[in-house]
Nucleic acid binder design. Sequence first.
DNA 1: ATCCGCACGTCACCAAGGTCGCGAACCAAA
DNA 2: TTTGGTTCGCGACCTTGGTGACGTGCGGAT
Lengths: 376, 376
Amino acid sequence: MIRITNEESRESDAGSFARVPTQAEVARLAGVSQTTASYVLSGVPNRVSFATQERVLRAAEQLNYQPNLLARGLRGSSTGLLGVIVRDISAAAVGAVSRALLHGAPQVGYDMILTDAADDVKTLLRLAGLMKSRLCDGIALVGELPEEDALWDDYARLGIPTVAILHGGQNLPVASVLLDNDHGIRLAVDHLRSLGHERIGYVGSNLLRGVMQRGEVFRAVMKDKGLNVRPTDVVNVELSREGGAAGLVQLLGRPHPPTAVLAATDLLACAMIHEAACRKIAIPEQLSIVGFDDVPEASLTWPPLTTVRQPFEEFAVRALAMFTSGAASSTRAHRQVILQPELVIRESTAAPRGANEHLGAMSPRDSNRRLHSQLS
Amino acid sequence: MIRITNEESRESDAGSFARVPTQAEVARLAGVSQTTASYVLSGVPNRVSFATQERVLRAAEQLNYQPNLLARGLRGSSTGLLGVIVRDISAAAVGAVSRALLHGAPQVGYDMILTDAADDVKTLLRLAGLMKSRLCDGIALVGELPEEDALWDDYARLGIPTVAILHGGQNLPVASVLLDNDHGIRLAVDHLRSLGHERIGYVGSNLLRGVMQRGEVFRAVMKDKGLNVRPTDVVNVELSREGGAAGLVQLLGRPHPPTAVLAATDLLACAMIHEAACRKIAIPEQLSIVGFDDVPEASLTWPPLTTVRQPFEEFAVRALAMFTSGAASSTRAHRQVILQPELVIRESTAAPRGANEHLGAMSPRDSNRRLHSQLS
DNA sequence: ATCCGCACGTCACCAAGGTCGCGAACCAAA
DNA sequence: TTTGGTTCGCGACCTTGGTGACGTGCGGAT
């Protein structure tokens, strides 16, 4: 236990911490009452003469005064703090949004503090309780927890403005900033189609709602465009590198494998590119890969990943705006903002073998046969 | 401004937030005084009869009572919170340590909150002030800021237990957990030597102390081992992808380029691998690359990166231990823990061309000539 | 019966700072 | 000189929950 009692700090001469000055001490030094100091330091207009203001401010500076957030928050109705509760900071997308929130908050007059709930629903609730107990003026929930559906009632009763980001839920009881997954998948499929791909595979996951949604959208979009999706062209894996690698192997290990794969997540896509490199499968010559998210790593792979970009920065900006505008403060109107993704074309996609050129190139059949031998 | 006044929450029937119950309300419901409720809820032994305890606890449960952290912290001497101030969460190493801290704190009885100072010294000071004003029981500083040397005096007067992590400073006025850079560089150089490399280049940076140190150590170790380091074999760049790419080009663009490169950071190393792929320079056949950090991306490159692993998890564990043991609480003894890195050998390193085999292989000269043409 | 000690509950005060409303001082107009 | 208005500063009280000191009532020992 860390505990710095007055006794301790008195009995030890060196090695002790200086006490932080209080407003009352500033007032004493300035020769005014604590009330007056409070008026000056919290900037209430037309209460204190200019001369007195100066004196108080000088005293505060001299003592290196810093208001006690706890006392201020306890008495007043706000702390000037916003909280972020993150599902798992190691997920790149979550990290990107968190960073944008942390950096953007000062611009709207807040300080931002972040906590991580890992994968534990109980921890999440404890943290939410912590922030809600007047520590923060608002909470941003970034990412989603598996099996958190049961929690929404609690969230709704959080008693504090709340915005959910990177969440797949459609009818949340709190304000939210969402991505138009439909449009994103459509961009990716259109791109692959325009390159000449007809057989497009999909590697996704059923564990997280937001990701699962993309799989559903994928089927819908493909059907929409008159493209056939065989059951074996869609595989669900864990959201991890191993999952991505396994997905690739599964997909290509079957007869008549797709010529292009859409991954639900850049993590999966990067893992697939890596696995392809291990197996000497040429990307994009033998297989085109499209990711989803556009995390920083996506442009560091070889070849750089073509992917659907989520506007992470804008997520943060919009969420912050919802706090300042009060849209997050109402439990009545569950406002949601839906942002549009864009396609970033890099080098992991190309026309399928034999699509446009009919020179001496390998026929798709041959290509398939080669793939099979590489996967065995 | 977000503000939830009582008026607001009363006048609107739906769409308002439920008020959080206070200890006094719990006490009233249980038919006891607030004092008694306090004794029960903060678990003071031998003060309240078992029957009364039960009543209070039941009342608290019924009202869904949650203690107000602000009030508790104001009155008492601790809040049960530890704070992390991060230099820049987007740096992978910083992210890794932060994650470990966030996840590890509950195990030592704390909740962990994180803030990001970006690159701004002023922000850093404000955040430190925030946390020091009794919000947190301790602060972990992760990473370092350029030109923060002037701040150490302020840190020292923080008046709160502080531990610095991932910091290059040697004589910090606060407790710290450091990496044995010397040993790390030595591991990398030894590895390259044992593969047969004699001419080893280095790409580093002078902007951050901790990174700069590695460059100095590199020269020392090389000298130690009787290896010659020409000035052109060491380049300093920005700590960014662009920097890494530029470093590679500089190093190899010169006559008699090195056969292996040690990067001060995995970020630089990954960028170099990427740049090499762009220029069709075969890694490790034409050039061996060793990184430093072992961030998650390091194993996702192709080829996977050989690198010096920093024990990020252990950094966090040790830092937390310094809080609980009180080592962080004293300004007297500036305890520091130095951890040992280990070498992770993956596939970005190999024997140099023509080192061990003298068959029909290309001679080093030829290899150099080819490199030059690839870089033009 | 008296006294002591203990278990149990409560009162009052404390932490730091925000805020209402009073009142002193001052000036101008009546 | 009185009156009214304004400016400026302050006392007192508020937020929530922790804590020392005290009172009450009971049981057992003397």
